[in-house]
Design a binder for these strands. Structure first.
Length: 659
RNA sequence: GCUGCCGUAGCUCAGUGGUAGAGCACCCCCUUGGUAAGGGGGAGGCCGACAGUUCAAUCCUGUCCGGCAGCACCA
């Protein structure tokens, strides 16, 4: 009985059925066999030692190919070796799972005494030893009972749970490397030696068993591995460089904002940071105005009764700041609060308030769509461990808006929004946007028909815009599907910024109706949408993406006029006045310091432009223009420099109009 | 909130069971210097908070607060 094996170049050969990939590659060439660590059999990444049972296509995965397959295999194998090393060092440790992730791998352990990074050298040394021993990976298919009995006797309770979780129609694969054995779906390389020496443990952290906070916390060790030491070093260097762009670091260096414990998670915007903030807000306001939005402002503090009606009191209260509506006691002794005051809450969202405005008067179908925007300052009592610089705060300002529309307007409004959002992101310098369509969760409100229609409307709208998107299965809100727009920070963490959420529920709860063409009352459909998400987070993303070197229109200080000699002070002062009256954010540096010193300081401070004035320039009416990030300078008439700067400082949306 | 690590001057960081140090920044003086740190001097700290151990705690222990990484949650 023979089978036909087809090679990537299209050639085919016959082999006895049951021939292994190893035999096939060894039959081709010794040198190819030497570097082949796995294969793709009919497109599926597989153990090289797998027997080939039918006709198919084979591709060999060589260790030096630099392919994603090789990285995946190396990292997966390294995770196994990590687990073996840990159990060899601390035999009572239970192993759980150890998957490959972006840029590396991790392995979750259960150990009474959690790991610390101080354990890394010992673990890494043991891993090197294991790799050196060079055990082969071998695969065995076990029965469910056999596997459970095996793990039970070893006290591996988590593995027993995993065995139970594997669907009955799937076979259980056990991979052995020397004496160590693990339940694993594979595949693996030939031997642990194929891993090489380019691996490193990077961090430890707690993680819940199966990602559920009701479960025990496991100790997770993260690591990474590459095919070569050079690639590992390059990766570590890249991460170190990226960390320099951390907005928390740059925010301090550039004196943009700060946090302090008395207002945990709330930003103190410094003058320079607030320039940035205001520029962003003004820009968005212009974009919304010209896109048919109206702007409103709603109360910060509203009665709990109001939040009961909206449903937030029941579902969202643990994230709300609640404030009693009473005069606090002022006696030295005695309680500040009686506990009897009616409760109010700081708004965590703007939507219910916008419905109150919508509900004033009677709306006609002619009024729809009504696009109501607010720079809404919201407070959310976020878990302390979730706070993260500007990215995750407790007080934030959303560039929020609610579009009240008819069902048949959902798709066109969504398209309109997505185009606006992409135009904004392009102006902000972001092109790498990940869109997710979050679909019906397990627990949902409303009918399946309505969900299907809503998901279809959002999907169709996205397809009409031509942007790619992923489906985030089951991650929709309770009441409707949503679109999420994600960007990545300096070290590759993904943050949701923009959003569009469909909502049928709140209009019904709060009675947001309009009079339809036929005179009947109908509930409006509500689209919650934000482009930046929150100004705080988006500014954080901007700082990281530009490494603090903001484009001219956003730069807190656009130009510093610096003198070389004190004879030029008067001229420099005059230039700063002229720049400022032209709307340029200019500062004077007439300190008694050398020009080298001033150039360095403002370069470090990421000021995009310097106008240097010495004796010569002062006499000639010129400035020596130095641009951040470039060497050298050019001397030009001041008025020319001013005109050029004004053009460059024009926000991108206004620039486009002028052109 | 959970797990681990961390908390010394405005910033970056040394350091010790006997109440503290550097560089930069800040202030003063000298220097007027042509594109990434000129020189000298000075001031600056309840060593995160509170307890405990000790003759003695910034250092050891505990609790709390805050920060960092990840988890969970989320814009």
């Amino acid at each position: 009985m023979t089978i036909k094996v087809t090679f990537p170049d299209g050639a085919a050969r016959d082999y006895a059925r049951g021939t292994t990939g190893t035999t096939v590659v060894e039959g081709i060439s010794k040198s190819l066999a030497k570097k082949t660590v796995a294969m793709r059999w009919n497109g599926v990444l597989s153990d090289l030692s797998d027997a080939l049972e039918a006709d198919g296509k084979i591709e060999f995965v060589t260790r030096d190919s630099g392919s994603a397959d090789v990285l995946e295999l190396i990292r997966h194998d390294t995770a196994h070796v990590l687990a073996e090393a840990v159990q060899e060092l601390w035999p009572t440790t239970q192993v759980t799972i150890g998957p490959v992730i972006e840029n590396g791998f991790y392995y979750d352990f259960k150990r009474d005494e959690p790991f610390s990074e101080d354990d890394f050298p010992a673990i890494e040394k043991k891993m090197a030893e294991i790799i050196d021993r060079g055990a082969a990976f071998t695969k065995e298919i076990w029965s469910r009972d056999q596997a459970k009995a095996f793990f039970n006797t070893r006290g591996e309770n988590f593995k027993v749970e995993l065995v139970d979780a594997i669907p009955a129609d799937q076979s259980l694969k056990m991979y052995k490397q020397g004496q160590w054995i693990d339940l694993c779906r594979g595949p693996h390389m030939r031997t642990v030696k194929d891993i090489g020496n380019a691996f490193k443990l990077t961090k430890v952290a707690g993680a819940y068993w199966r990602g559920d906070s009701n479960n025990p916390v496991l100790s997770r060790i993260y690591g990474t591995a590459f095919a070569t030491k050079e690639e590992l070093d390059a990766y570590l260097h890249m991460i170190a460089e990226a960390e320099k762009r951390d907005h928390r670091k740059i925010g301090q260096e550039m004196d943009l904002y700060h946090f302090q414990p008395e207002a945990q998670g709330s930003v103190f915007w410094h003058p320079k940071g607030y320039v940035l903030y205001n520029q962003m807000e003004t820009y968005i306001r212009r974009r919304l105005n010209s896109s048919g939005y109206v702007e409103v402002k709603t109360p910060q503090l509203m009665s709990s009764k109001f939040w009961e009606a909206s449903g937030h009191w029941g579902k969202y209260r643990e994230n709300m700041f609640v404030v009693p509506d009473e005069v606090p006691g002022t006696e030295e002794e005695g309680p500040v609060l009686s506990g009897k005051g009616e409760l109010m809450a700081l708004k965590p969202m703007n939507c219910p308030a916008h419905i109150q405005i919508f509900n004033q008067g009677i709306k006609s179908y002619r009024d729809l769509p009504l696009r109501m925007a607010e720079f809404g300052c919201c407070h959310r009592n976020e878990a302390h461990g979730a706070l993260h610089g500007l990215m995750r705060v407790r007080q934030m300002t959303q560039d929020d808006a609610h579009i009240f529309c008819r069902e048949d307007q959902i798709q066109s409004e969504t398209e309109h929004f997505v185009h606006l959002l992409y135009s904004v992101y392009a102006h902000m310098g972001f092109s790498d946007v990940v869109i997710k369509l979050a679909t019906r969760p397990e627990k949902f409100g409303g009918t399946i028909e309505r969900w299907d229609a809503a998901e279809k409307a959002l999907g169709d709208a996205l397809r009409a815009t031509g942007y790619d998107f992923e489906i985030a299965e089951g991650e929709g809100a309770f009441y409707a599907p949503k679109l999420e727009f994600h960007l990545k920070d300096a070290i590759g963490r993904s943050w949701q910024v923009g959003t569009l959420q469909l909502d049928y529920v709140l209009p019904e709860r709060l009675d947001a109706t309009y009079v339809a063409e036929d005179g009947s009352r109908k509930y409006a459909v509500m689209l919650h949408r934000a482009i930046l998400g929150s100004l705080e987070r988006f500014i954080g993303m901007m700082i990281e993406s530009y490494a603090g070197k903001m484009p001219m229109w956003l730069a807190p200080v656009q130009v510093v006029v610096a003198t070389i000699v004190s004879e030029a002070d008067e001229t420099a002062e005059k230039l700063v006045r002229q720049l400022r009256s032209a709307g340029i954010r200019a500062e004077l540096d007439a300190r008694n310091e050398k020009i080298n010193y001033k150039v360095r300081e403002h370069s470090v401070g990421k000021v995009p432009l310097m106008f240097v004035v010495g004796k010569r320039e002062a006499e000639e009416g010129t400035v020596s223009v130095r641009r951040l990030g470039t060497e050298g300078q050019k001397v030009v008439p001041f008025m020319d420099a001013l005109v050029e700067l004004m053009a460059e400082a024009t926000p991108p949306d206004l620039k486009a109009k002028a052109a």
